[in-house]
Amino acid sequence: MTRPPAPLPSIFTGEYVRALEGVIGRILPVVGSAELMRAALEWGTHPLSAGLNLVFGLVFLLGFLGMLVFRRSRLLVIRLTFFGATGMALAFDALGFQLLPPGLNVEDTAYLVTARHIYLPLVMMVCSWLVFPSPWSQRLALGICVLSLGLKAAAGFQAVFSGLATPAGVTNLLVLHTLVVGSFYLLLQVLTVVYMRQARLEQERSVLERHAHVDDLTGLLNRRAFDHALNIAAAQVSRQPGPLSLITFDLDAFKRVNDTHGHPVGDRVLRDLAVLARREGRAGDVLARWGGEEFVWLLPGADRVAAARAAERLRAAVEAHDFRVGRVTLSLGVAVWRPGDDPQTLFRRADELLYAAKHGGRNRAEVDPGPPP
C-alpha cells in the first residue's frame, strides 16, 4: 500500500519566527510614527484621511507596545496587529470616494488607482503570507482581495448616486482594481505553489540523505556513514597526532532473544541499546550500527584509559537495564590508534578484541594493550 506523502515542512520554524519578530519589531514603530506624522500634516486639509492615518499609526504603535509587554506571545501580537491594520486598509477602500481632493472631476476616478491607499490591500495580502502558515495565509489573502473589491464597488455605487463619480469612471476603477489586486493574488498563489514544490523536493532529498546515512531501526549512523567518519578522523590524526579510539560491541547471545521472543522484540532491544549508547557517548563521538547486533563507537580525542572507561560505563549500563527479555549483556573491543595505523587496521584490531572478549567469557571489555615495545 502506498504511504501518503509526509506533511510539508512549515516555514514557521523557531528561527523564522524569531527573525519575523525582529523585523516586525523594527518596522512597527517606524511606520506608526510615519502615519502619525501624515495625520498631523493633513489634519487641516483632509480631516477624514488624517483620521484614518491616525488610527493606522495607533494600531502599529500599540502592536509595538504589545510586543514589548507580551514577549512570550509576540507572534500572537503581530497577528492581532495584522488584523487591525487590515481593517484600516479596507476602511480606505470603503471611504475611498470621500477621500477625493476637493474639485476633482467626477470622471477622473483614476485618481483612486494611483492614490496612496491603493497599495494597502496588496501590502496586507503579502503580510498574510508572512505572519500566517498555509493554508490560512492563502485564505486571508483571498478574503482581503474579495473584501477590497466589494468595498470599492459599494463605495463606487454610492459615489455615483452622490454625484461624486460617473458610472463609466466607477466601472473603469473596478476593472483596474480587479486586475491589479486579482493579478497580485494569483502571483502570490504561483509563489506558494513554487514554494510547496521546492519544499517537497527538499523533503524528499532529506529523506534520501537520511536513508543513505542513517540506520532505520536504531536512528544511528549506518555502516557507510561510519566508514566516512572513520576515514576523516584517521586523516586528521595522521596530520596532527593525537588520541583516537574505536570501540566495537555487540550483544551476547542475541540469537536467543530473537528465537525466544521474536524479531520485533529483538528490534526493540537493539533500539534500547542504541539509546543507552547515545547516553554514554560524548559530543563529537560517532555511533553507528555496523550490522545485525554489532555496533561501532568512534571516540576522537579519547586515549586508552578514557576509551576503556567509556566501554565499561556502557557495559554496566546494558547489564543494569531492563530489556524485558531477561538478562542482557554486552561484549566490547577497545582499540587505540597507533603510529602507522589506517582505518582498516584500527577497525580490524577492535574487531579482534571484541572476539577476544567473547571468547574470554562475554560481558566484558577487551582493551588494546597498546603498541608492542
Results as ranks from 00 to 15, higher is better:
residue 132 F to W: 04
residue 137 S to N: 06
residue 246 L to G: 00
residue 186 L to C: 12
residue 34 A to Q: 09
residue 129 W to Y: 15
residue 119 Y to R: 11
residue 238 S to R: 11
residue 233 A to G: 10
residue 2 T to C: 09
residue 133 P to A: 10
residue 307 A to D: 05
residue 73 S to V: 08
residue 195 Y to G: 02
residue 175 V to K: 05
residue 171 T to C: 05
residue 193 V to Y: 06
residue 231 N to C: 05
residue 30 V to F: 07
residue 29 P to N: 10
residue 132 F to V: 13
residue 366 E to H: 13
residue 148 S to Q: 10
residue 357 A to Q: 11
residue 69 V to I: 13
residue 206 S to W: 07
residue 141 A to D: 02
residue 98 Q to H: 15
residue 245 S to E: 02
residue 360 G to S: 07
residue 38 R to V: 14
residue 197 R to F: 00
residue 97 F to D: 08
residue 90 L to F: 06
residue 298 L to V: 09
residue 329 T to G: 01
residue 290 W to H: 05
residue 184 F to C: 01
residue 305 V to I: 06
residue 136 W to T: 01
residue 41 L to A: 10
residue 322 D to C: 14
residue 89 A to G: 05
residue 350 A to D: 01
residue 223 R to K: 09
residue 360 G to E: 03
residue 362 R to E: 13
residue 145 C to P: 02
residue 54 L to R: 07
residue 266 G to M: 15
residue 66 G to V: 11
residue 263 H to A: 11
residue 142 L to I: 02
residue 62 L to R: 09
residue 138 Q to I: 00
residue 39 A to K: 09
residue 187 L to H: 10
residue 230 L to Y: 00
residue 315 R to L: 02
residue 245 S to A: 13
residue 152 K to M: 08
residue 155 A to V: 05
residue 290 W to L: 09
residue 162 S to A: 15
residue 140 L to I: 01
residue 54 L to S: 09
residue 28 L to P: 14
residue 366 E to T: 13
residue 134 S to E: 07
residue 347 F to K: 13
residue 19 A to D: 14
residue 93 D to G: 03
residue 366 E to A: 14
residue 190 V to C: 01
residue 255 K to E: 12
residue 52 L to T: 02
residue 2 T to Q: 12
residue 25 G to N: 10
residue 347 F to G: 04
residue 335 A to K: 04
residue 111 Y to E: 01
residue 45 T to H: 09
residue 158 Q to V: 03
residue 69 V to W: 08
residue 3 R to S: 12
